[in-house]
Amino acid sequence: MSRRFTPSVVTANDLFEGDVVYLTPDQGWSRDLSHAQLFTDARAAEAALAQAQAQSDRLVGPYLAAARSGPNGPEPAHFREAFRARGPSNYPHGKQEAGMCRP
């Protein structure tokens, strides 16, 4: 039963833009993964997710995404999350356009 909890961030898509957003420590939403709150405790993460699920007037499809702690804040643990955090690789669109992601 005591499967170890993988550290995670709460993430979703913004209802209006569709862009990927992350829950920040001050209960806000950022488009930048490095600003996200990294949960290391399963119960706290589930509680934050439940709160996100209640915000369906601004979010679509919230879930917990595995992440690691890095020098500038949380980093993606899987390449899918790396693409979500950065944007497509064929054009500098999305977050790359906004100058929001570090290479």
């Binding site: 209802l15 833009e17 569709g18 990927v20 369906s56 679509v60 499809g61």
Partner: peptide, 26 residues
Amino acid sequence: RIAGNLTEEEFRPLRLMNGLYLQLHA
């Protein structure tokens, strides 16, 4: 949907019927 009168579960089939998907970034 924007006014909060439809949930995503209710809206999703309606948007898909009109060709609107939600992908990774948009």
